[in-house]
Design a protein around this nucleic acid. Structure first.
Lengths: 355, 355
DNA sequence: TACAGGCTTGTAACCGCTTACAGAAACCGC
DNA sequence: GCGGTTTCTGTAAGCGGTTACAAGCCTGTA
């Protein structure tokens, strides 16, 4: 024998980068197929081999390469989340909910933000990088969005106009608005002014319709003023009500910022809330409970909505994988039903007036 | 000639799934290499071929497969963002900033949330799915984190204890807290209570240290109470101060949510802010200027911090690609210096008492 | 007309992993 | 000791791209 025996398997200097499955196979003295089997469980592998491979892998610090794996398995383990340029808590709550659901399924979230429609062209490039897509693009024309979508990638739409071949998840704005108006009416309001959002906005339209239905059902007067979802337009209506230009004993605003604008204006003019005029909003933003008097609002469980979207997408991905794909498994649209959170601005003590 | 000429290239029913580069090559009657060249620009390609390929691609609705591409190019175009289970605006602002920077560089953000340390093991699995990592894990032991990191993946740490071989980006909590306490003292406060974050949290520790230094320097009393960074613990301290259990003329909270909790409790009990008790927070969340009285706070440009982290990571990735890798290009640590935003909760009119 | 040399284009070898298939080994009862 | 199973294990062909290399096509010039 030669004095200095060279290792049969020449010490395979693990490149400072990363060991591959071949390195592990070589060190363990087995084939790559076996290494793969050990790492993926499932198949029949003898215990001796398993430990050999595991030791080699540990020694080399081997971690499978996710990209390569996803290429051969046609599964990435990630879902794309496409959102408008959102600020604040809505955004974080939505992502929190999505993550909650995704992480239990071992999925990652790949974020794509649409800045004013730019970024749409990056959508198609997501093919091969995600298993599916949750798309929220309320401000965009659904047709345009659909056109930019990579085909054959499962998709769920969030708070968008209904799509043809993909399920969508909506907020039941109608029910929420109806609940708010019914509550105001039950508290004794007779003349409600509804400060709506911009006419072109889908949410605004639905909230208005819900308010009108509930008002009719309760037999109270509802007058609609169009606002812009911002504090300023609430202030204007608040001024009018305070001045008597608009005669009303309750204001239902299409969102909380407008409600707060109105509330502040009423306070400035010495109008008692809720005794003289009750106020309610929509969204239940965190600020709603911090203003004083605290604002009654229609709350949406945003995190739950995000979670639901991911769950639905996961189901769709699974279905596609099992061959139920090609066409209309589609229409399983769902609506999230919001609930009313009653606070000081509608806690009326003038009993006996209402129902 | 035969009456019904069969297309030389038999109509290649494009599988409803997705066309590959081979399909395009076949339809265009060229090789895959040429298709690849057309799609990646760069190389010399004759105009005629370019249009042929482009037409075929359009006809088939071909989009390159990101996974396959990243495998052969060793570049994924995504960076992993590892964050603790965050709530609220901090989270969304941070992501907004990261996205701003990432999208200009054509990078995607792959989100991974660490729920109490679970999820750490998924980190290594990110190899091959991302080009680099931004890690924020202030509540975790740096050594443990390092152990779970995939080797050879560029990393930047955010608001963590300094790491050996990766640059980190910190908030200068000490300076920020010191500024707040100095301001309170200058306004006449003599007995300040500092409501700190959880003891295990690095940010909380540093803020506390800064507060103590400044208090000592200004010669005022500082009493520390441990909170949990949430509104509730602020409320508790607010109650105590209102009840006189804790004697104090100023509260400096380790973050804004606790400060707001305290503020609301004080208001409920009729304690005048800032006349009787001044209040200051940390973070300057958007809510801070909307509560009344508006909250004085230490502001961090969170979005900028996120953007900076991504920029730094991008630089590191580029360096690694160019071969400057292997070891200590590391230590380029940076600290973000926050600034004090003075609002109503510390605008004290009892002149003459203080400095 | 022949030939050097620059553009284009095609062939085929990867990137790192999974997996169908077939061959080897181990086990069984006779 | 032997054929028939059953249980491992290895070989090699993809997954869908990129790209080094070589071959083919032009062109201009001698």
């Amino acid at each position: 024998m030669s004095p200095a025996r060279p290792d049969p398997v020449a010490a395979p200097v693990p490149r400072s980068a990363h060991a591959t499955i071949h390195d592990v196979a070589r060190v363990a003295g087995v084939s790559v197929a076996s290494v793969s089997r050990v790492f993926n469980g499932r198949d029949h592998v003898r215990a001796a081999m398993r430990t050999r491979v595991e030791e080699a892998a540990a020694q080399l610090g081997y971690v499978p390469h996710a990209g390569a794996r996803s290429l051969s398995m046609a599964r990435t383990g990630a879902i794309g989340v496409v959102l408008p340029d959102l600020h604040g808590e809505f955004f974080s709550e939505l992502l929190r909910g999505m993550d909650r659901e995704a992480s239990t399924r071992g999925l990652g979230l790949l974020l794509t933000v649409l800045h004013d429609g730019r970024g749409l062209d990056t959508l198609a490039a997501l093919r091969g990088q995600v298993d599916g897509l949750v798309v929220m693009a309320p401000q965009l024309d659904p047709a345009v969005v659909a056109q930019h979508m990579p085909r054959g990638v499962a998709t769920v739409f969030l708070a968008c106009a209904p799509q043809d071949d993909s399920p969508s998840l909506r907020i039941d704005n109608r029910a929420g608005a109806a609940a708010a108006v019914a509550h105001l009416a039950a508290g004794g309001a007779k003349r409600i002014v509804h400060l709506s959002g911009p006419a072109g906005n889908l949410d605004a339209q639905e909230r208005r319709a819900g308010a009108e239905e509930a008002a009719a059902a309760a037999g109270v007067t509802l007058c609609v003023v169009e606002g812009d979802f911002r504090e300023g337009s609430g202030a204007v209506v608040g001024e009018c009500v305070a001045a008597g230009t608009i005669e009303a004993d309750a204001i239902f605003a299409g969102n909380d910022m407008m409600a707060i604008g109105a509330l502040m204006a009423l306070k400035r003019h010495g109008v008692a809330v809720p005794e003289q005029v009750a106020v309610a909003g929509f969204d239940d933003i965190p600020l709603a409970r911090l203003v004083s008097p605290a604002l009654t609002s229609v709350a949406i469980d945003i995190a739950a909505m995000g979670a639901r979207a991911v769950a639905q997408l996961a189901a769709r991905i699974a279905a596609a994988r099992d061959g139920f794909l090609e066409g209309a498994t589609g229409g399983a649209d769902e609506a999230i039903v919001p609930h009313l959170v009653v606070r000081e601005t509608t806690m009326i003590s003038r009993q006996g007036t209402g129902l």
